[in-house]
Structure formats: C-alpha cells, structure tokens
Design a protein around this nucleic acid. Structure first.
Lengths: 182, 182
DNA sequence: CTAGAATCGGGACGGGCGTCCCGGTTGCTC
DNA sequence: GAGCAACCGGGACGCCCGTCCCGATTCTAG
C-alpha cells in the first residue's frame, strides 16, 4: 500500500506550524488574509505553504475538517440523548458559539455552499444534522413550522457575526422567536 | 456662481444610462460586479463611467442616496404618527423588504460602517433614526431591553439575505423574538 | 458649415492575490 | 561523513480589478 516513506522531520514541523498559524489567523482576521501573509507569520516561504496545501481551499479544509467532525459528533450525541427541540436548540447555540469564537468559521457559515462542501469532504455532514434536527423539532411542534432551513442558516450567521458584544441577547431573541407560540 | 455651462446632451444621456444600468446590476448581482462590466452593459467605455463617477464608491452613492433619503423620510413619518414600538417594527420591516429586493443594499447593510458613511454623505441619517426608534421602543417596554443596536443590524442583515424564499417567516421569528415577553 | 471644446472609448498602469517553479539548502541513509 | 533526494525560499507569472490618460470622435455655438 503505502510505498511512500515518512516525510522529513522539518517538513512535518513546517506543515504543523503553517496549520497552527493559519488556524489562528483565520480565526482572528477571517478568511481573506492572503496566503503570503500566513507564510510570513509562520516564518516560511510561500512555496512551502503551497506545497503542503496546493490551494488555499486545501489549507482551509485541513483546518476546519477536524472541527466539523467534532461538531457533527456532538450533534449525533444530542440527537440520541435529548428530545428534538432541546437537541436542536443546543446544536444551534453550540454552532453559534463556535462561529462567534472563530471569524473564519463564521464566514464559512455565512456563504451557504462553502460549509457544506467542506463538510462533505471531511465526511462530516454537519449541515445535514442541523437540517434533520430542525425537521424533528418542527414535527414535535416545538419550533415554528413555517421557517425553512435557509432561514435557520441566516439567523445562525447573524448571531455568529456578533464578535465583541455578548451573545446572550441575540441568541435569546432568535431562539424565543423560533419557538412555537403556545 | 455657476459659470459652468450645461453638460452636453450625449453626456447627460450616458450618465443617466450608466446610473440606470448600475442600479439594476447592483440590485440583482451585488456590489462586486466590476466597473468594466457595468460599462460594457451600458454600451459605453470605462472612461465614461469613471469620468462621471471618479470612483466606484461615487457611483454607489449616486445610486443609493435618493433611496436612503426616501427611507429616512419614511422613518420620520413613522416616528411622528405611530407609537414607538409600531414605528420601530414598521421601519425594521420596511428596511428588510428594501434590502431583500436589492442585493446591493443588503450588502451595504451587512457591513456596518458603509451604510452609515453613505447615509451621512446623502444627509440622510437612516441608521440614527433606527437607533432612536429602537431606544424609544425599549423605553416604552415593548422591545427587549438587553438587545443592542448592533444586534438589530445583524438580524436585519440576516432577514435581507433571504432573497428567494418568502420573508414572512423569518421576519415573524425576529420581530416576535424582539418583543418583550409579557 | 466649421472650428473648437467637451466627451468618448478602451488600452495602460499599478496593486493585490493565488499558484508555480527553480536554484540553493538541509536532513536522512548507508 | 558523503551523496542524494526531499524540501525550502521567494521571485515570477497570470489574473482580476479600479483608476487614469490620450488620441479620436461628436456635439454645438456662432
């Protein structure tokens, strides 16, 4: 199978350093930071970055996939142990907090298609889980039946955008609004 | 005073045509459309565009200012004739509808600073009106006291992002959520 | 109708970004 | 410790965009 020998030590070091720096930079400054800048801050050349990650998208996927897998696992956990509405709102809140803490993730969640594409490559269909939990929570009558998945995505993105201000008020507005009037 | 003679007829025609085309393109495809493309669709050279509007921002201002003035007038009207909560929600809804119908306006509303800057140049402090109406509606006890202006902006932007789907559900979620629990 | 000024068209320019490549260097194996 | 392959650095390239400029054109006053 693997007729490829292990990569050189310095190559592994550089790869890890690039990942580390890129994760921090994307989180604090967003996805629009140039690759050159990431290379500079990591103390390597741009060639080193683009060899390990041929494309900026590849770099992004490498950073996000582990996180997406973790969040998906959390979604499954919630779906198993909680009733639909509790699970849905817990996942929603969890995603919002993750996005609020990571500028890059928030941007990803904002542009509908991108997050799904990356999740698919990582084998973690987080969006699908959210979709299912929404449907279940609507079926059980706890969430308004007229909102669509796209509405949820938009609201989630709006909550994530609150970077500095406290999240609680806007989260309360949205979750209250989503609950079916009794 | 005006020692400048009237502009040539073809110049006025071209200016109007550029404005018209740009308004449509910005509305349907967003602000990221290149100036070259606007010139092409208007059937003029790029130089013609950049002479009438030295900067892309100038073009944007020319398009948006009249709309902002109108919306601001509407806000004042509401503030005069309605109670605070009614006025606030009416303005909120009106802005959302305007943004949903115009991709460019939605983008503008999404990036906090930009809309304010353009409004200021147009002498139409729409954001200030929204801010005041929010404060009044909170003071009268009809809107949750813990939400901030930034939260409103984020929620507004999220609602505007719903382009094709019906607006009513998400608007209902947000407005219900904003109302103080009785 | 004509001259001259206003205006036009679109190519040139500068800046930014992602990606690729190559000469030089470094780590690994024997 | 020597030689080779893997790897590095960063400059080069191509692309896109906004803005500026200039030779060619068109309008309009007289």
């Amino acid at each position: 199978m693997s007729d490829e020998r292990a990569p050189r030590a310095d190559a592994r070091r550089n790869r890890a350093r690039v990942l580390e720096v890129a994760a921090e930079v994307f989180a604090t400054e967003g996805l629009s930071v140039p690759v050159h800048e990431i290379a500079r801050r990591a103390g390597v050349g741009t060639g080193t970055v683009s060899r390990h990650f041929p494309t900026k998208e590849d770099l992004l996927i490498a950073i996000m996939s582990t996180r997406l897998v973790k969040l998906t696992a959390e979604a499954d956990e919630l779906a198993r142990h909680e009733d639909p509405a509790t699970a849905f709102f817990a996942l929603f809140t969890s995603l919002v907090r993750a996005g609020a803490a990571d500028c890059g993730l928030a941007e990803l969640a904002g542009t509908d298609r991108r997050l799904d594409a990356i999740g698919e490559r990582a084998g973690a269909d987080l969006c699908g889980r959210l979709h299912e939990l929404l449907a279940a929570a609507q079926k059980s009558g706890d969430v308004r039946a007229d909102v669509g998945y796209a509405d949820i995505r938009a609201l989630m993105s709006a909550c994530m955008a609150r970077k500095e201000d406290p999240l609680e008020p806007i989260l309360a507005v949205v979750t209250d609004g989503l609950r079916k009037r009794s």
